[in-house]
Design a protein around this nucleic acid. Sequence first.
DNA 1: CGCCTCAGTGTAAGCGCTTACACCGATTCT
DNA 2: AGAATCGGTGTAAGCGCTTACACTGAGGCG
Lengths: 341, 341
Amino acid sequence: MTSDRANPTLQDVAKAAGVSTATVSRCLNSPGVVVQDTRTRVMEAVERLGYTPNFGARAMAAKRTFTIGAIIPTMDNAIFARGLQAFQEELHTRGYTLLVSSSAYRQDVEDEQIRALVARGADGLLLIGYERAPSVYEYLARRNVPVLIAWAYSAGKPQPAIGFDNRAAMRSLTREVLKCGHRSIGVISAMTKGNDRALERVHGITEAVTEAGLDPADLDIIETPYEIENGQAAFDTLMQRGAKKTAIMCVNDVLAVGALLRARERGLRVPEDISITGFDDIELARIVSPGLTTVHVPHREMGRKAAIELVQMVERKSVGVSLELQSSLQMRGSLGPASKR
Amino acid sequence: MTSDRANPTLQDVAKAAGVSTATVSRCLNSPGVVVQDTRTRVMEAVERLGYTPNFGARAMAAKRTFTIGAIIPTMDNAIFARGLQAFQEELHTRGYTLLVSSSAYRQDVEDEQIRALVARGADGLLLIGYERAPSVYEYLARRNVPVLIAWAYSAGKPQPAIGFDNRAAMRSLTREVLKCGHRSIGVISAMTKGNDRALERVHGITEAVTEAGLDPADLDIIETPYEIENGQAAFDTLMQRGAKKTAIMCVNDVLAVGALLRARERGLRVPEDISITGFDDIELARIVSPGLTTVHVPHREMGRKAAIELVQMVERKSVGVSLELQSSLQMRGSLGPASKR
DNA sequence: CGCCTCAGTGTAAGCGCTTACACCGATTCT
DNA sequence: AGAATCGGTGTAAGCGCTTACACTGAGGCG
């Protein structure tokens, strides 16, 4: 039965090496405690049989999986990719494996995937942004699974997070835009429902505008899903309605690139005829011409530090501390003085 | 003990609902077989306790996980993202969950991750390209885990695959380049070690060149890792050595974009002074200006069909059939007539 | 009216692994 | 020399779940 064609088990290895299952297990998990001679014999049997431990069984017995789960809104573009890559690398050096799912920016999907990852025994979870149903946090707390929020940071939130202040960053960028003399500004936002990063960024714009003594109601704001095409379409809409804009601020680079492309297609010169700004500083931002003025986010640093902190939490060496990283303005060619009409 | 603060188990639910564990299990897995009344009682208990089945235990007992694993070379750029997204979506509609890891283009890492996914009970695996150690295929065969190859297709390989003929596609693109009068061609390839797609593409170029009666030895080929920066550096190298090139063919869009940027930085006009081509037709290709002439790959279709076939294989309704998809040339501005010196 | 059938449920045997505890022979100490 | 110690190994009890099989009572049948 046990030596059945198929999957060798600990039993099989033990038998093959002439030791007990306990010894085999020890060879695999704490080799130091087994004497050299036995160990080589066991390892050889492992090799010969092509044995791979059954993860489920192991997790069940050990109550640890050395697995971290991450759920990102999308894999479709590069925003999360860089940070996640760094996250994974750091995790790897610490002996953890990363499991990733993407929620397609849908809260119900995210919910489902959180449960899936927990059920799979994820020792900890990395989630993007704060906004989700309280029941989700309750569930996680009850299951005692540490969670770290990334890509966002707001003082005063109960959840540990590592990220930057989306609102403040956008505020500074907006100040620059205003400094260039722009007064009629269009805003292309991602869908803010369930996406607190986008919402914070929009807030940053309105705050800066207000602070400059302007009426934020004059901002022409449009919300659209996260695709280049939508950036293009939104740009059209914005140009067709209301006062003539001299600047378009986008809450992320993908939408900004869409706007930029469309501007070019419409024969507008950037920034002479119209300025465009983004957020995130993904690769695209420096590829397009003119380069996109945007907010630079320390993706890799964030990923790396998130990994470090989350592992601490998982190993109960930390209850979760928040960390605010600094974003910075990345000035490129797409922002210029407001065109005098 | 069982009602311990922490994770409710089947036991707990059973007790709370006043039924046996078997009944709870049945409610969860084949609700049809349980009478309405009991079922609602159980479901209510499940809800109340916030119960989530332990995946490991379930996998161990049922020998099925409804999980598919995929290992891609990188998440760092968009090549695999689109196809993977489609793959995941299709999987989801069929009740499967996708687990993704990235191997950073390293075979040893891939190897490790294959084992990790198998250990986690992946019912099937999606792998990119054919090239890997035979021992890996043996391992998978022994463990009886269905594997589907994607992003590549070569007739005559034993493994089922879904993809396109990288070599033939590059051959046609090269023919176009030759048709434009280019005779001195530089090639920027990704590292071909362990990356059969890149190698095939290079072969495609040499074949087309040979077929045109030229000497493939005149091709100036350079290999470099997969980053925009490297494309830029490679472009410099290529321009500095050997005969003056009129066209640079890159085995993928990322490198091509790097080359394009550098060309621009060096004050070269594309395509008047130099032509540049890519491969993959990722988003970047249409963002840059001039747009990149490249090979369009049906990413989403590939992802979707891969999911369908792999599920068939996992459910033992197919032993794995290969499917060749058609790629097509995507002509944009970056390819033009050879500059007459 | 007793027997068979069958739908609905319970019982219990694993699935493959980790680990507390027991055990044993070889040192080391007094 | 005998006791205490200790490193190396085996024994066996779960971990939480699925499922073959056993059981029970209600309805249909002759």
